[in-house]
Design a protein around this nucleic acid. Structure first.
Lengths: 231, 231
DNA sequence: TGGATTTATGGCATTTTTGTGGCATTAGCG
DNA sequence: CGCTAATGCCACAAAAATGCCATAAATCCA
């Protein structure tokens, strides 16, 4: 699954973007400060980063972050798109010169942002070698997540889960040991009933137990939510 | 030397751009009509093309050209930047959906254009692949692809497929075993024609099954996309 | 311990996604 | 210009995924 990082300090906007991108079936990780982002992005290695230019107190925290990321080997070539509320052309030039790939005005429709992201992802994809790309995977104890195709395996046995299930599983496992509330595990709009999460957890457990009757990694924290127990 | 193609029917503008780009030490080739460009670009294989949207008599000759180029194997992944005098947001989305990489308004300073070009070149450069000869036939299990004439054979029996079908087949088979999303299998607009991929998959399966009733190499991964199963 | 609340479960309804055949439109070519 | 094949589009069918509900079980707290 394509993984996109958002760096935006306005919580409302951040969640708007998160919603929008989730709807495109992309995995989203949000950061609200430059400090969080520069550490987090390196460790969660997203496929693309969406960065608000006017981040933090400084007028151009986003630019600083971009410069920073471009100096770190792991993120030297990370596709970066700037979000800007001001639409002066200097911004665009400055951003591009710092090593960003493109920019989007926050004033326009978010459809534009999606189109820009898609175009950039396509460009990056064009140049992926067919064979030299081993399937990316993330290991959390006995669990292995394969974001590329939204699959998972437990003790090296492939578990046959659906995309919705993967979504929840990934959210749990990515934050292993930490509590995830119902809301945090909800896939789409928060309008849907809470049973949805419950149902998916149920199905996940069933599928894992079919492989390993002793499976206990999904822990329910009564009244709070769920968590993934590292083994 | 980086080689850039300009497609612009206003001679004054064309020469302005040519000057500007030459100043960046880039080699420039200009075309003034869609017809010239579609032939010329294929044969002079530039590193990037700058295309005026309002090319020729039609209001959107540039779009037509882009679509054309995206269907020709040699220019399928050519970096394309649109030049537009109108700056409506629909233009940007439409252009991007046609497979372009970015756009620039002709109203702004040309410095912006240069910055955009540089950003795109940088992105392409990040991932220069040791180009394998695209003319060589490629074998993937029982399947053999012949890029020259866009044909394919299955167990040494020639399958009579069309270019559009070849396109999708190649994308699937070249990434054998890996998931290809709907978006990845289509170059053009994914909003208007979502069934296009489905239709082509359908036809491909039909044609392969006619040869080999047991054909199962195209696997659908529900909610994810399709993949080619190695045999 | 008992009642209130939260979570688990199985089954079923709904929604989403994919497959199929047919037809309309378009591109390519002589 | 007109013919033919390719392509895209649509409506409906089939399959899969997802959400919902009633009820059972578990947990919490007074």
């Amino acid at each position: 699954m394509t993984h996109i990082a958002i760096v935006e300090d306005d919580p409302t906007l951040a969640s708007n973007y998160a919603d929008l991108l989730s709807r495109e079936k992309w995995e989203v990780t949000s950061f609200s400060s430059r400090e969080d982002a520069s550490i987090g992005i390196v460790s969660c290695h997203p496929d693309l980063a969406l960065i608000d230019v006017g981040l933090g107190a400084e007028e151009d925290g986003g630019f600083l972050l971009c410069r920073e990321l471009r100096m770190i080997p792991e993120t030297k070539t990370l596709p970066i798109i700037f979000l800007t509320s001001r639409s002066e052309q200097m911004d665009r030039i400055q951003g591009l010169n710092l090593g960003a790939d493109d920019y989007c005005s926050k004033d326009q429709s978010m459809d534009v942002t999606v189109a820009v992201i898609k175009a950039l992802l396509r460009r990056v994809d064009f140049s992926k070698l067919p064979d030299s790309n081993p399937r990316e995977s993330k290991k959390v104890g006995s669990l292995t997540l394969f974001p590329d195709d939204m699959r998972a395996s437990w003790k090296n046995i492939q578990v046959d889960i659906t995309v919705g299930e993967y979504d929840i599983l990934a959210k749990l496992a990515r934050h292993a040991g930490m509590l995830r509330t119902h809301d945090q595990l909800t896939i789409r709009d928060s309008v849907v009933s809470k049973n949805t999460v419950t149902s998916n957890i149920k199905r996940l457990r069933q599928k894992f137990e079919k492989i390993d009757p002793n499976f206990k990694a999904i822990q329910t924290e009564h009244g709070r939510g769920y968590s993934w127990k590292k083994d």
